[in-house]
């Protein structure tokens, strides 16, 4: 590897990214004039992804992963923070520039059921983005490309004229993947892109992601709950807990030796595909932490087996611990 300038190969850089949502109160609290509650879905996170790299993003359900994905693709606007794409301020892009850029950043949505237009055939769904971005002109060319894409995600010509509701959950998910790949993007953000697939087709799709990365230098932000999938696909992993990144590390280091108590709890809770292995263990006790008015200090307070008195008062910051790793915890 040549020593490159640190920023030259930087594809995506996120700093202090924050998103607040205002909640609806019920009618009684509105009448009582209570203040609307604010939920902090993403709370000042920093991360970067280099060209050709895969960053895995894991964390508790509801911790802000999909919100992060939507912020980075500018489907929603952040409350604060910066998103830089190839060293440019993405948030300052004009609508026109943003429209062009959309081709380069593709999002595979977590819920394919709501992200595929129910009134369009698969042919339309897969060829329309190619048309918009001028990637295929003649009908024949389009059809050929669509068939090729379908084949790569394990579907075939029998599916081309059907509508989204005529598919199984996993088939719909593969259509969503094919659509994201159809416009030759640079950055693919996959929000649980293989969660509805059996392990054999999942292996086929993960190999496809790998091959495309090697062929075209694609960059991935990969959100998944299946930690063996994350381990397999990621170069680096970021672990989130209630709006914060609590640990980042090269994938192999993270799985071999998790440092943050939440990461440890995650790894201990993975059920292994062997009935003779011990069942997963829950090492976190107590109630799940809330993103609404979280108390000061560490978000894991009250659940953490390693808690110290300082944890409830001072919020731990992400600090370098060597080996390309960062952890936010007072008691490593």
């Amino acid at each position: 590897m040549t020593a490159q300038g640190a920023t030259d190969d930087m594809l995506l850089e996120v700093r202090g990214l924050t998103k607040h949502f205002t909640l609806h109160g019920d009618i009684y609290s509105k009448l009582a004039g209570e203040k609307a509650q604010v939920l902090t879905a993403v709370d000042g996170i920093d991360f970067h992804i280099r060209r050709g790299e895969t960053l895995g993003l894991v964390g508790e359900s509801g911790c802000g992963k999909s919100t992060t994905a939507r912020l980075v693709t500018r489907l929603i606007e952040p409350t604060a923070g910066q998103v830089r794409l190839k060293n440019e301020d993405l948030l300052a892009f004009s609508p026109r520039r943003m429209k062009e850029t959309r081709k380069d950043i593709q999002l595979v949505f977590q819920d394919p059921y709501s992200s595929l237009n129910p009134r369009k055939t698969i042919m339309h769904i897969l060829s329309r983005p190619m048309e918009i971005h001028g990637l295929a002109r003649s009908w024949n060319e389009k059809r050929e490309r669509v068939l090729h894409l379908l084949h790569r995600v394990g579907l075939s010509v029998e599916h081309i004229d059907r509508y989204p509701h005529e598919f199984s959950g996993g088939q719909r998910q593969r259509i969503a993947i094919a659509r994201a790949l159809s416009v030759e993007p640079e950055l693919v953000i996959g929000d649980e892109p293989v969660s509805a697939l059996d392990v054999s087709i999942q292996a086929q799709i993960l190999n496809l992601f790998r091959d495309l990365q090697e062929e075209f230098g694609l960059t991935y932000l990969f959100i998944a709950h299946d930690l063996s999938v994350i381990r397999h696909i990621s170069d680096r992993v970021a672990v989130m807990y209630v709006g914060k990144i609590v640990e980042t590390a090269p994938a192999s280091a993270l799985f071999d030796k998790p440092l943050h108590p939440y990461t440890k709890a995650l790894l201990a809770a993975v059920p292994e595909a062997d009935p003779d292995k011990p069942p997963p263990r829950l090492t976190l006790k107590g109630e799940v932490s809330t993103p609404i008015d979280p108390p000061p200090g560490c978000r894991l307070c009250g659940r953490c087996p390693r808690e110290l008195p300082v944890c409830a008062e001072v919020e731990p910051q992400l600090v370098d611990v060597g080996g390309g790793r960062q952890v936010a915890c007072h008691n490593l």
Partner: peptide, 13 residues
């Protein structure tokens, strides 16, 4: 597929 969208700790719960 009741737990596909859940992390492993909530899945265990």
């Amino acid at each position: 597929e009741p737990t596909t969208a859940l992390d492993v700790t909530i899945q265990a719960t």
